[in-house]
């Protein structure tokens, strides 16, 4: 009995030693070497593709942001700012676009709450952008998987041009041209979907001169 117990212990001790060896190789050495190479060769990507404005970073071009009116009484107001291109709805955190709580709504395909939310959004976006409700594209009405989607469809970007131009007293043609410059096609022509990065678009919009 005592002999078999000793054997069992010795067995597990060897297993533990093997686990520690693999921890050193795949858990310490591997990520450190990858980090070293990544930081040396691709520092911009490895550090989050940050967008800088003069001094510090104002965004990561990969992570979506809220573009709402300034908060009142310390609370985010939640109403969209007409001066900016608006991103998709977000389920990351109560206010949306919180990278500390990435995630989706997880509402089912026939969930009554989701159906109502989609209909309400259609009405609200159509009124905000002054377009017919039927022309609002699906990405403007649905929350993304990550809640941090930085992209919208080209259709949704073009839909917002007149509203943004008016709020900023800009020539709509100039804003339309800016959007056109930011439309990205499918990668290699066939991977994924066409899109406009709202972060980069809004960042460049801020630099556009008034007419």
């Amino acid at each position: 009995m005592a002999g078999s117990l000793t054997r069992l212990l010795r067995h597990h001790l060897a297993a533990l030693r093997m686990l520690l060896v693999f921890t050193v190789i795949t858990g310490i050495a591997y990520p450190l070497v990858v980090t070293g190479i990544a930081q040396a060769v691709f520092p911009h990507q490895a550090n989050g593709s940050l967008v800088k404005d003069g001094g510090g970073p104002v965004a990561s071009s990969l992570i979506g942001q809220r573009f709402n009116l300034p908060s009142q009484k310390g609370q985010p107001s939640g109403s969209p700012d007409p001066k900016w291109f608006q991103p998709r709805p977000s389920a990351a955190g109560p206010a949306g676009y919180d990278p500390k709580s990435s995630g989706a709504s997880n509402l089912g395909p026939n969930n009554a709450g989701l159906v109502k939310a989609v209909r309400d959004r259609r009405t609200a976006v159509a009124a905000f952008d002054r377009v017919p409700p039927s022309s609002v594209p699906p990405d403007a009405l649905t929350a993304s998987g990550s809640g941090l989607d930085p992209d919208i469809s080209p259709a949704y970007a073009y839909e917002q041009v007149n509203r943004v131009a008016k709020a900023r007293s800009l020539d709509p043609a100039a804003v339309r041209k800016l959007v056109a410059e930011h439309v990205q096609g499918r990668t290699l022509g066939f991977l994924g979907q066409g899109r406009v990065n709202v972060i980069v678009l809004n960042h460049d919009l801020a630099a556009l001169k008034r007419r």
């Binding site: 997880n106 509402l107 395909p109 989701l114 989609v118 649905t142 899109r195």
Partner: peptide, 16 residues
């Protein structure tokens, strides 16, 4: 019904 209301099954999916 949510997909029909939105005009496409983009809930929970990424634009890219």
């Amino acid at each position: 019904s949510a997909g029909h209301a939105a005009g496409g099954m983009m809930e929970g999916k990424e634009q890219r």
